[in-house]
Write a protein that binds this DNA or RNA. Structure first.
Lengths: 218, 218
DNA sequence: CTTCTTTCTTAATCCACCTTAAGATTATTA
DNA sequence: TAATAATCTTAAGGTGGATTAAGAAAGAAG
């Protein structure tokens, strides 16, 4: 084979092309983040560059785990591409999905991140995915360099809080059917991309019962 | 009667005593707050005075409502004495208790406070109570004057977030009996002070079923 | 002390949702 | 292409918890 002695011309060319493609891809990924941020806050061009440089790109294979329960979550992470879930495992080793996320969302065990205590949740890719991560300390520095970023995250945390509050009340006061209907209208794009048994887990019911619900509603 | 023409000597004396008592009482109430704060943060004497002056005392009769759903929650409030509940009312006018609070706790519709949107919850006194309130804007000023206070509230908000996360997971993955047992060990002091049907509401079950559970466990 | 209100209990009936188990589809991978 | 794994469906029987209705206790108020 040619590459026993070195790298063939074809090989060289394809590596070159791959590199070009990668650079192009990296730019596009960070642009997604900036676009996302500027939907809420205003950034100058210089600030956008600083922000972009503070994030690191991470690629995940399907089923790859980004955060394990027990670890301390040390990054905030923006989903540039793909689909992830945050779930927790009870004493009987049953999984309970807490949150899904797709492009443009943030996933994390926020409590672990905020308090620097071991995570109770796993965060796992459900598809081949790309996330942009910023380290806890780096973010604290960035808060000072780009104050608008602090505003952005304060709003993010507040929204995270209310989202949980709403979920708690829903689980306590609504039937599984009501919750499923709400899920379908609110997260139609997510429903298409994740297996049904995970939707069931998110809703707090068994896959069999969700199947029965769907049949009834048809 | 003597007080048709003015105030009798006895009347005058009792007013005087009442005033003395009130001042004494006010001091004690604010001291409770300072003691509470200094369990988490450090305050100089001067800072403690500034903080104390930023809070206003409010007395509530049993059943009096401190915050109505629909209003915008504009204060953080510390319970110095008594017992309150935060609850929300569903479409069928059923009440769902979100949180209890006694001396040393904070109660609020935090989302309304943080986002300045109309509250979804009511906050009501379950006993004659005393709360210490600080206005949103006053607190923002205080953050600058006494930085340790900002730290205190950041930690408070983080704890509020995790408390909700834990409750959501509990409601989703545990039986009513498990949740009741947990409630008893975690909030034994609260269980003694609130009616059983409110404990049921907090747990997301009917009072009848809670009664049955208690009978079974006896 | 009596009356009214609030709170708690009991019991019968009913429904939402779970469990188990098996088969049917649909993806993955060899 | 076959084989294995992952996912979805169906059906029978079981259970947790709701609903309704009635009465018992315990407070609060006149």
């Amino acid at each position: 084979m040619t590459f026993v002695k070195g790298i063939s011309v074809i090989e060289k060319n394809s590596r070159f092309l791959l590199t070009c493609f990668s650079i192009f891809f990296v730019l596009k990924v960070k642009e997604k983040l900036i676009k996302h941020l500027t939907q809420t806050i205003t950034l100058t061009n210089e600030e956008a560059v600083i922000v972009g440089n503070s994030f690191k790109e991470r690629h995940l294979e399907k089923k790859e785990v980004l955060l394990f329960a027990g670890e301390i979550s040390s990054h905030m992470q923006f989903i540039a591409e793909g689909c992830l879930r945050a779930y927790y495992m009870d004493e009987e080793a049953k999984e309970h999905i807490v949150q899904f996320g797709i492009e443009g969302w943030w996933v994390n065990d926020l409590y672990s991140y905020l308090t620097k205590t071991p995570a109770k949740q796993f965060v796992q890719a459900l598809e081949k995915s790309t996330v942009l991560q910023i380290n806890h300390d780096t973010l604290n520095i960035l808060y000072k360099e780009v104050p608008a970023i602090e505003r952005f995250f304060r709003l993010k945390f507040e929204k995270a809080y209310v989202a949980f509050q709403e979920r708690t009340l829903d689980v306590m006061s609504k039937t599984a059917e009501e919750r499923y209907l709400e899920f379908r209208t609110k997260y139609r794009d997510i429903e298409q991309r994740v297996p049904q048994y995970m939707v069931a887990s998110y809703l707090g019911i068994t896959p069999e019962f969700l199947s029965a619900l769907r049949k009834k509603m048809r």
